Each structure stands twice: as structure tokens, then as C-alpha cells.
Computed example of a mutant assay.
Amino acid sequence: MIEQLSIPTAAGHFDAIASGPTEGRPVLLLHGFPEAGIAWEHQVAALGGHGYRAVAPDQRGYSPAVRPERTGDYDMSELVADVLAIADALEWNRVDLAGHDCGAGVAWTVAEQHPERVRSLTAVSMPHPAALADAQRTDEDQALRSGYLTDWRQTRTTERRMLDNDAEALRRMFEWRVPPSRVEEYVQRLTEPGALTAALNWYRANRPGARIGPVSVPTLYVWSTDDVAFGSTAALETGNWVTGPYHFHMLEDVSHWVPEEAAGAMSSLLLEQLNTH
């Protein structure tokens, strides 16, 4: 049920997985760090089986053919432009957009800046950027949770630390909540020359505290109680930054890695969101 795609854009060819009839209602799913489009494999297959056309690309830096060396080439404006370019290449005028982790950050921004292109938004783990910025400033718990961002911006030092001892630190990020075979695949991808630096450039090019305005499209936000990166303060505040129809769903005893750890539940939530809107 899963196809492999190469999506041509002016920036280069994006690798992607896809499922469903080409004429199906389009759904674009954006992965986070340090993963790839295959993080959404269960959801892509489920959506395809229900007649949607689901595509999950390996984003800028993760697709080998779109891996520029300059840190500035990973600015949010470039990441947003990639989403629009991928949609254009697929001949999609409007999409249902989903994102996890920093992929959700891109999805939030696309939905705020280009609501005419987004039928609905599903954000997983990462709260609305303004809610997160406020929590980082006012909530000690969230400030501590976000401390890793400072470390990750230390050029090259972070790469060495993550890849030392057979990428032990990179593997430990997944908290033993993601299947070992999948973790191994992510590690192999990120040990390609320049791949981990490209992935970390997302954080180096985009500073914390960046704010966007309210989102007007129908939005589902999924947060998990065992998420080490995003606490409850920003999660509960997110609804105040959505002016359109909004649904908040909390997953108990699930870690940050929602699309893979709670694959069935996430697929059901996504299908419900699409069926509703």
C-alpha cells in the first residue's frame, strides 16, 4: 500500500512515501527531528486505505537531493516554501496538513500564513509557536524542557556528541518507545555525510520565541502526557491561538513519539479530523 515518490521542486527532488488513489483528497504529513517521512507510515497507509491521497515527504535536509550547506537555507521561510512547492508539484491547491514535532512548527506556520492552501491542520506534540514562546518565558518547567535547544545550536559539537559511541545519544532520544529497526534506519540516514548537520540547522536557523498569529483553519492538536519536550502549560494554552474550529486531544502515558508509539490511535484521530472537516 506504500509507494515511494520523488517530488520535483525548484529546490530539488524530495523523497516521500505515499498511499491512496491519486484523485483522493490530499493529505500532506510533515515529520520531526530526528526522523523522516516514514514516521508517518501507519497513518499514510490508513489514510490511503480510506480513499485519501496521503504523502509524507522527507523534508529539507532529510532528502539527500535537498540538503543545502548554509545554515540560513533552513530558515522557516524556506521550510514553508518547500511545503507549498511540494503541494504545487503534486497539483494540490488545498491540502489537509499534519505535522509532528518541528514538522508541526512548519505546519502551524503554513496554516497561519497561507490559510487558503490548508483545509485542516493536525498538529502533534508541538504547541502553537506563540503558546510555546509564552511558556518558555513564564513557565520554569517549559524553560527547562527547552534547554536542549541551546545545546543543539552549538555547531559541530552537537553532531559529535550525538554520533559518538555508535550514535548512542541519538538512539537514546527515542526513549525505547520506537521500534529498534526504525531507530536503526533513522541513525543510518543521519550518519550520511552532512545529514545530521542539515537536520540540526533547522534549530540553528530558527531561534526560540518566534511568534506567529492565530490560526483560522479547523485544527486538531494532539499532546501526550509523557512528552519530555513540551509541557502542559503550552499545550493547554494552544487553544487560545486558534480562531477556527478546535479540538484538543490528550494521550495518556504516551511519549513524544506519538505517530509511531501510538500509531493506531493517531491514525484514528487523523481520520476523525478529516471526516469532520
Rank of each mutant, 00 (worst) to 15 (best):
A130C: 04
A195D: 06
W223D: 09
A169T: 07
V254D: 05
S63H: 02
R25G: 06
L84R: 09
W40Q: 05
A133H: 06
V258P: 02
Q113I: 03
W257V: 03
W223P: 07
A135I: 01
H31N: 14
R172T: 15
T122L: 15
S120N: 02
R171C: 07
G209N: 06
P64E: 07
A234L: 11
A210I: 08
R189L: 11
T219Q: 12
A169R: 15
G49F: 09
F174I: 03
A87E: 03
D253L: 07
G49E: 07
G72F: 00
G105Q: 08
F230T: 11
H128Q: 15
N240A: 15
S268V: 08
Y62E: 06
L132W: 06
L274P: 07
A36K: 08
M1Q: 00
Q273W: 08
R182K: 04
C102T: 10
L132H: 06
S19C: 11
A235K: 03
I2N: 00
M1P: 13
V217I: 14
L200G: 04
A111P: 09
E272N: 14
R211V: 08
V55C: 02
V187D: 05
L269C: 13
T155Y: 05
A39R: 03
A107N: 11
W223G: 08
S19D: 13
D226S: 12
Q136A: 14
